[in-house]
Amino acid sequence: MIVSRSMPAEASRGDGDIVAPRAAADPALSAGARRTELTVRVQWPWRGLVLVSVGGEVDMASLPRITEIVRQRLTAARLRTAIVDLSQVGFASSAALELLMLAYNAAGRREVQLLVVPGTGPVRRLLELTGLSALFEQADTVEEALQLASH
């Protein structure tokens, strides 16, 4: 299930998904484990700034809905800064990289500042493993991203 709200102001698992390597602190995935529900939340903390927060799993099944939400928000009039918060993502396949590249390209075409909050889990590891970490302006927290955002 996807929850979407817009508010102003390493290894294969055997099913074909490529996943980031797991850290010792990550919860173990078992064959019968229930997948985490995807959530997408959109906020407009101030005029010209959109914050898209994604939680749960980012994989090929969830990618079309997430990319549509991000694409719509990046085409908003008078947008100056977009923050993509992936700190609550518990599972990320290569689809997370596709999402970030879509956001990067869309932001570049519109000359919009893009800030990414990868968190400390699978998204950060994917960025580091692929060498894409240097491509994105990153913040450790949403609060830090809001401070970096252009007013």
Rank of each mutant, 00 (worst) to 15 (best):
M101I: 13
Y104T: 06
R73C: 13
F136T: 06
I66V: 11
V142D: 01
M101F: 15
A11E: 13
H151F: 12
A106C: 04
E128N: 07
R71M: 15
A9V: 04
V123W: 03
R47I: 10
Q138H: 09
I18G: 08
I83D: 02
L63R: 05
R73D: 10
L129G: 13
T39H: 15
E137N: 11
D17G: 08
V89S: 05
Q113W: 00
V89N: 00
W44S: 03
S94D: 14
P122H: 14
E98Q: 07
R109N: 11
A11L: 15
A11R: 15
R109E: 13
V112H: 00
I2W: 13
A82C: 03
A76R: 04
L102A: 06
A23C: 10
R125A: 12
S87Y: 00
L49R: 09
M1H: 15
P118D: 06
Y104N: 06
A106K: 07
R73M: 08
S87I: 00
A145C: 09
I2E: 12
E37V: 14
A31M: 15
A139H: 02
V84T: 06
D15P: 03
D15Y: 09
R34C: 12
M1R: 13
L38I: 03
D26C: 09
L129S: 14
A24N: 12
A77Q: 00
L49G: 04
A107V: 08
A82Y: 05
R22S: 15
E68T: 12
G32Y: 12
E98G: 06
L114F: 01
V116I: 07
S87C: 01
V112F: 01
L97D: 11
S6V: 05
A11Q: 15
A134G: 06
S62W: 02
V40Y: 03
S4N: 05
R22H: 09
R35G: 08
R65S: 14
E37H: 07
A76T: 04
Q113N: 03
Q43N: 11
R5N: 14
I66T: 08
S133Q: 08
V142C: 08
R124N: 10
A103Y: 02
S62D: 05
V50M: 05
R125W: 00
E111G: 07
V3N: 14
L49N: 09
R35M: 12
A134D: 05
G32N: 10
L49H: 13
D59F: 10
R71H: 10
V84Q: 03
R80Y: 05
L127A: 07
L74M: 12
V3C: 01
P8S: 10
M60N: 09
V3T: 12
V58W: 09
E10A: 11
Q138K: 14
